[in-house]
């Protein structure tokens, strides 16, 4: 795990005249997204999260659809063991992190660690978003290095955060939760966002706002963090 030092962070979507700065406490973060191999180890110890066992409340029918069986075969481990695990639900990702005495990062923690405000990153990220070619099977150790020694924060997969739906429920005295949500659908979003031209962040926030806990998808994985 890599140490992400404490710091101040202005959330991407914030409204009002006083843009609140958020104090981020130092934490440790997985250097890479969780791999298929690591998730397989977790399932060996926790059978209830295997795909034939998992409750439909906690994962939809596409859960681990890229795995042939409940556990990976030797051949599959060779082939995809080092690639990030995808097609996992928020519930499963959360359970994985808890089993490692960790947790999923909050949106603020994730965005802070990902250095996603850095203008240099933005066009790079946009290119990934705009590309059809999938590279989610890149071995995690080969993913590009970002700030704080973290690999693959941008340009490979989407990642679960703990409060992915907080954009919907964050409230403030002048706007209802549903107004905030509309901000992501139409022009209103540009009023509430820190930087209207940061389209890359817009897309991440828009993506997260459409999720629900049992949703799984071929480009959505996760990594864990631990408090210091």
């Amino acid at each position: 795990m890599q140490v992400v030092p404490s710091g101040n962070y202005i959330p991407f979507l914030s409204s009002g005249e006083n843009k609140p700065k958020v104090q981020i406490k130092s934490f440790k973060m997985d250097q890479t997204p969780v791999t298929n191999f690591e998730f397989n180890q977790f399932l060996k110890a926790n059978p209830k999260w295997r795909k034939t066992k998992v409750l439909s409340l906690f994962a939809d029918q596409n859960y681990l659809k890229h795995w042939k069986h409940d556990l990976l075969s030797e051949g599959e481990i060779k082939k995809i063991g080092d690639s990030p695990v995808v097609n996992v639900s928020w519930f499963a990702a959360r359970a994985f992190c808890h089993a490692q005495q960790g947790r999923l990062a909050s949106i603020n923690e994730w965005e802070f660690a990902a250095d996603s405000d850095n203008p240099k990153n933005i066009q790079k990220i946009l290119r990934w978003y705009g590309k059809i070619k999938k590279n989610q099977s890149t071995p995690v150790k080969k993913m590009s290095l970002g700030k704080y020694g973290l690999r693959g924060m941008h340009g490979y997969i989407w990642e679960w955060v703990n409060d992915y739906n907080s954009v919907l429920i964050t409230n403030d005295s002048r706007s209802t939760s549903s107004d905030k949500m509309n901000g992501l659908f139409c022009g209103g979003g540009s009023l509430g966002s820190k930087d209207a031209s940061n389209y890359a962040s817009f897309m991440r926030y828009a993506f997260r706002s459409g999720l629900d806990g049992k949703y799984t998808y071929s480009l959505l994985g996760f990594r864990c963090i631990k408090n210091m």
Binding site: L126, G183, L184, F185, C186, G187, G189, Y199, F202, M203, Y205, A206
Partner: peptide
């Protein structure tokens, strides 16, 4: 489509 970022 009107998903953020709408322009893109």
């Amino acid at each position: 489509c009107a998903t953020a970022p709408v322009g893109m």
